[in-house]
Design a protein around this nucleic acid. Structure first.
Lengths: 213, 213
DNA sequence: GCTCACATGTGCACAACGTACACATATCAG
DNA sequence: CTGATATGTGTACGTTGTGCACATGTGAGC
């Protein structure tokens, strides 16, 4: 019998009320502390103040919980991108489109550096192109990270910054470069680099994408 | 008591002889079957025909075994790159340098697609820039994947294909793009793409790097 | 060649994890 | 008010990583 001293405010009734949501939140916390492998079903139930078995009323298995946590983490990535985009001053439409595109990269990588565990979790689980547009993974504007990138690229074409014939599949090229840098930062060989050097690399990778697309 | 029917040829003596090597090989097999998380210490010892505890005479813990397996897998990546480079016909030095550079990317990505489990394992563990040049991770020519890339970029500069002022940190830019595409292929949203489309993306990402560096 | 120290493998134990199943209880429809 | 259903509990099992006492080959020095 737990004493209700956990994070949540001491369940009063036998029922929890919103256990599914609570488990996902606990999972996101765990992801932040230790990445996807730290999303441990028993620990999540422990933090919520519930028996391990209770989780199985809301998730088929640990992987299902992890998938849900992954979606939540992707929504956080979308939020980071939106935050960077929101900071762009209102200049002419062309320059603004260019900066919105770059903000997709900087927001993505800023989140990867600030929240490595959650970032890894966001892209750890089973996700195909279908689920990359699932609404559970969207930020405040209702767009997933992938969709934010797509929109930014479309705007580049509209503003004449990207030739239309180069547009197809451009999201995958841009995504590869930025995502790869994130991986090298987080548990790759660039982990130990001092922060200013990382910032320089971020700029240069985005330069490369902008020039190479 | 195992009957010695495993992979290895029925240990005759109490001593194994080369248990460390055998455990790493079993680990590489497991990595090929299910990625880094499939590198399970007990299963490795089982396949070798030995008690779980025996592994602790050669590795501090599971992570140490995984690190060794990771190094072996990186050597396999280096081998794949070398194989692609060896297939380049002898033309003029300039074109040859360009193709050797591209072969780093194609070999890297070919291995990622052919051996996703081992590829993931190769870059799953703790590795900084020091260990990226460790000889345990080298291929037949004695160079790690990272070193093969470095050499290829140096040759680009020598042949005048890359301005010297763009050379610094270029390995990280190129690596990011190619590594990112590999991640998107393996457990990212591009997993389900048909193979020809993947091949096209590989070409286009390397084009982007060549043009954007 | 014998002996003893040391390296290496065995056996057993424990805690943690994912998960299954029978049981208990709160909530809501009628 | 009553019963069906949703949701949480308790217990149990198999698997994993890992520590520790013990056993047994192997080689160094006499």
């Amino acid at each position: 019998m737990t004493t209700g001293l956990g994070n949540s405010p001491a369940r009063t009734s036998y029922r929890h009320g919103d256990l599914r949501r609570a488990l996902i939140e606990a999972g996101v916390d765990l992801a932040g502390e230790g990445g996807p492998s730290a999303v441990v079903l028993r620990e999540a139930t422990r933090r919520v103040g519930v028996t391990p078995s209770a989780a199985y009323r809301h998730f088929a298995d640990r992987q299902a919980l992890l998938d849900a946590v992954c979606s939540s983490c992707q929504a956080l990535v979308a939020g980071a991108i939106e935050a960077d985009q929101a900071r762009i001053p209102a200049t002419d439409a062309t320059e603004s489109a260019r900066l919105r595109f770059r903000a997709v990269g900087t927001g993505y990588l800023r989140f990867a550096l600030e929240e490595p565990g959650r970032f890894q979790t966001a892209f750890s689980a089973s996700s195909d192109l279908e689920s990359a547009t699932s609404s559970a993974r969207a930020g405040e504007r209702g767009l997933t990270p992938f969709q934010l990138l797509t929109v930014a690229l479309d705007d580049l074409v509209t503003e004449g910054l990207l030739p239309a014939e180069r547009r197809p599949a451009a999201e995958f090229l841009a995504w590869s470069a930025v995502h790869g840098l994130a991986e090298l930062f987080i548990d790759g060989p660039l982990r130990a680099l001092p922060d200013p050097v990382k910032q320089t690399l971020i700029t240069r990778v985005i330069d490369m994408v902008e020039q190479g697309l």
